[in-house]
Design a protein around this nucleic acid. Structure first.
Lengths: 189, 189
DNA sequence: CAGGTCATCCTAAGCGCTTGCTTAGCACCT
DNA sequence: AGGTGCTAAGCAAGCGCTTAGGATGACCTG
């Protein structure tokens, strides 16, 4: 049929997000993709290699969302608001991929973990920088910039623990809510 | 020797927190406790039964921390501050148990999940109620009370994803930081 | 106080099953 | 004629859990 590699990746996202990496079998992934278990090893070196491909792509997508949002605005208030808004919305709209990104780091090999850790630090740095600039310009009042940046990201990250598509809150509503809370965390007292 | 059941529980907390439920073997737990694999089944029906015992005790401890903090204060501002402070501090000081409480729900049987879910709802309800009372008294200005309550709890919950004892922030510092951020989320604009 | 009884707590051994992954080979397209 | 993408079959290892029985100490009995 269509792209078999893509079907395999989509099946793995579902399986890993629903059951976790360790509770997911290669037979489960393969059967969701309509293939034999051996087909997985045509496209990936191992089950962990497949996880890494998903995790890396997910990290790059999340980083892209944040940097794009930051690039759209000049003043720190609008920039922070857009960053947390879009980061939250991405986590809700891609909650299965995001769950793999945020909760399956421990299953990666040291080499693979080192690569995705670089992307994670880039995301944190982007949030820290907008807070620092806002403080410098007097738009924000934040005593602990790294800690507050971590807290803002925690809102979106923790969403994937409980979020279900079709629940009472849409991705847009959550994005608006968390972007507003982030601004309240940074606003001068 | 000493309490063998307690040693088994302590070993399981370490193993489940470090490697996750599914990646932990009964042989690993038993050897950490200095026992044979079969000893686990003297004290628990199954590996999942052991997880449930840890999860239930952890949930009750966390719920107790929140209700105790709430009971110590009358006005909503002080009460909210104490609740988020103590809830955060508990998650940092008991980060291994908290990791099991927050991240291993999917490994529980439906019956066991139903019981811990009751305790989780009790915690959420306590936070929602203090927000509602604060809004009623004019101390808080919160548009989405359930969503904001969820966000405040998310801060402490997400901490267990990255917290390591002996890191740059102490449990007290984190508790102060997150309690302050929670107040900023609720304070009138 | 000596000897027997019983419950408690644990272990050695291993059963049946599932796991991630490999191998050999087939079908199809160019 | 050869490369590509897949499968059927199965291997070695590790899994959760069971079974049968040994060691220990508390407690009766004569």
């Amino acid at each position: 049929m269509d792209d078999a590699r893509g079907r395999l990746a989509a099946a793995a996202v579902e399986a890993f997000a629903d059951n976790g990496f360790h509770a997911t079998t290669t037979r489960d992934i393969a059967s969701r993709a309509g293939m034999s278990p051996a087909a997985l090893y045509v496209h990936h070196r191992s089950k962990e290699g497949l996880l890494f491909a998903l995790s890396r792509d997910g990290h790059l997508a999340a980083l892209d969302v944040v940097t794009e949002a930051a690039a759209r605005h000049d003043d720190p208030t609008a920039r922070l608001q857009a960053m947390i808004h879009d980061f939250t919305q991405w986590h809700a709209e891609h909650s299965k991929t995001a769950r793999i990104v945020q909760y399956e780091l421990a299953a990666l090999t040291p080499d693979h973990l080192a690569e995705v850790a670089r992307h994670r630090r880039a995301i944190e740095r982007t949030v820290r920088e907008v807070l620092e600039e806002g403080v410098a310009r007097g738009e924000f009042e934040v005593a602990d910039v790294p800690g507050t940046a971590l807290a803002m990201l925690s809102l979106a990250v923790d969403l994937v623990r409980w979020y279900e598509p079709g629940g009472s809150r849409s991705p847009q509503q959550l994005a608006d809510l968390y972007a507003g809370l982030a601004l309240r965390m940074a606003r001068p007292l």
